[in-house]
Structure formats: structure tokens, C-alpha cells
Computed example of a mutant assay.
Amino acid sequence: MTALALLTFGEDGVATGHRLVDPDSPALAITELAATRGDGIFETVGLVGGRTLKLDRHLARFSSSARMLDLPAQDLAVWRAALRDVAASLDPGRASYVKLVLSRGVEGSGIPTGWAFGTAHESYDDVHRDGVRVTLLDRGYPHDVAQTSPWLLQGAKTLSYAVNRAAYREAARRDADDVIFTTSDGYLLEGPTSTIILRSGRTLRTSRTDLGILAGTTQAELFDWAATQGYTCTYDLLTPGDLADAQAAWLVSSVRLCAPVRSVDGAAKTVDADLTAAFNAHLRSLAG
């Protein structure tokens, strides 16, 4: 089952409402810049029992990405309503997600295009139990690229995902399931669709967000929870050596939730089953 809402926009480029449409019917013009240029932003919001996970964090990041791309600031109440109508159209008995997309629109129109698309996704129970095999790939930028070259839009959640998809294909060629990007000067960044967390004793670490990476909504929620459980949570310049030395590692995201890393470039890594279960139980408890 899928569901789709199309947003309507005023002349100022701000969404004013939405309507549910047939998700199997044509909805976009062939000159839509989302398709021809990847010129837009998105957020993917996980659903548990038909209820959203961390919606406020996603909408805040949605607004941040819009600012970075010089897209019109949006009325988030309109987007929230579209998401909830789409979510209500899905089967609450299946794990699902809703993707919010804001594009610059049809080329030459000056009016954005936006939609909310919802669908069920596969079960990740096996991944939560067994973990993922990771390979390290050089993203090709130094760690300060966000400061030296802001026009590269590092840290915005854009529709331009060709590099991320290529990274997954390279991972498959290396007999791996997922990727952690590194900088050209030797620091850990993020996965193509996830944020990294490392554990050393009672300390949890993740990469600093000023490295041109997305501020992870799932990672931030886990850090908030972990702090109440007595963990120290830090944002650091992390290296592959830190990953090798960590007692456990995870890739976390809104749909797959918390996936433990079981190997890095073929070197086995211990899966912390207890903390993985606690992480995922906490995330599922947030649905509302």
C-alpha cells in the first residue's frame, strides 16, 4: 500500500495546502527540476504503528536544508498535515515511512513543487540482530569543506543521491552491506543514509556536524536518551582508528533505526546486542 499527497503553493513559494491523489497516476511534469537536476530537498520520516518518529527533528532539518538551497521558508504546519494524511492512509500494522520532498519546481515557473509519499518497508529484524558489514570509502573532500566551499551543500539533505547510490554499488563489489565515508585527510563522516555512533565503555561518540554531514535526527535522539542512562555523549573528529578501537559501532537512521556494525573492511567487530535492543526499543517508543 502506498499513498501520495501533492502540496499546493502560493506565489511566494510557500505551501498553502495539500490534496491526496492516486499514487499510481502521473503527478510530475517532465521539466520538473527534481527529476532533471535533483534540485530540491527531502526528509524521510519513519512510522511505527502508523505514528511518526521524531517528526519535529525532521521538520527542523527540512527547514535548514531549504535555507541552504535558497528555497522559500515553508509553513511547517501544512507539511505536517500532509504527512499525517498520508500516514493515515497506510496500513498501521506494517512498518512504513513518509518522504517529504520540496523541489524548486518546473523549470522557469518560479514556483516550487512538493509532495509527501508514503509506503511500507521491509523488516530490519535480521539486520538489528546480525549487523551490517561496512566498507570505508573516501568522499574526496577534506574535513573543512563545509567552511571552505559552502556551495557544495555538504550538510543539506538534497535530492542529488547519485553519489550515494554509487557508493552502495561499490560496497556490494567489496562484499559489504553499507558504507562509512571518510574525508580525504582521514576522518570519519557518515553513511550514505545514516549516522555513525561508536561506543567505548560508557562513552558514545559521533562525528562533528561541522564536517559537512547531516545532523542525524536518530543519533540526536539516541544521545538524549543515552545521557539519561549515564552515558557520556560527544561529537568528535573521529578516525578509522577510533572505529577499529571502539567496543561497538552502529549506523543509525530513521527507517532502519539502529543497525550494529559487525565488520569493517573484513575485520570482525563485536555486536553489542543488548545496547542495540535498548536503542531500538527506545526509538520505537517515540511514535506519536
Rank of each mutant, 00 (worst) to 15 (best):
S123E: 15
V127S: 14
R129H: 09
R129D: 12
V132L: 04
V132M: 04
R133N: 02
R133Y: 06
L136G: 02
L137C: 00
L137F: 06
L137K: 01
G140C: 07
Y141K: 03
Y141R: 04
P142L: 03
P142N: 09
D144N: 14
V145F: 15
A146D: 14
A146M: 13
A146N: 12
T148G: 13
W151H: 11
L152N: 13
Q154V: 02
Q154N: 13
A156M: 11
K157I: 13
K157T: 14
T158F: 07
L159W: 08
L159F: 10
L159C: 13
S160M: 00
N164A: 03
N164W: 04
Y168D: 05
Y168G: 05
Y168W: 13
R169T: 09
A172Y: 01
R173W: 01
A176P: 12
A176G: 10
A176Q: 06
D177P: 05
D178Q: 14
F181H: 08
T182M: 15
T183N: 08
T183C: 05
S184A: 11
G186M: 10
E190D: 12
E190S: 09
E190W: 15
G191V: 13
G191W: 15
P192T: 03
S194L: 10
S194H: 12
T195A: 13
T195E: 12
G201N: 04
R202K: 01
T203P: 14
L204R: 10
L204W: 00
R205W: 06
S207V: 01
T209K: 02
L211P: 12
L211S: 07
I213G: 05
I213H: 09
L214Q: 00
G216K: 02
G216E: 05
G216H: 03
G216F: 09
T217Y: 00
T218D: 08
T218I: 09
Q219N: 04
A220W: 06
L222Y: 09
F223S: 01
D224P: 00
A226S: 02
A227Y: 04
A227E: 07
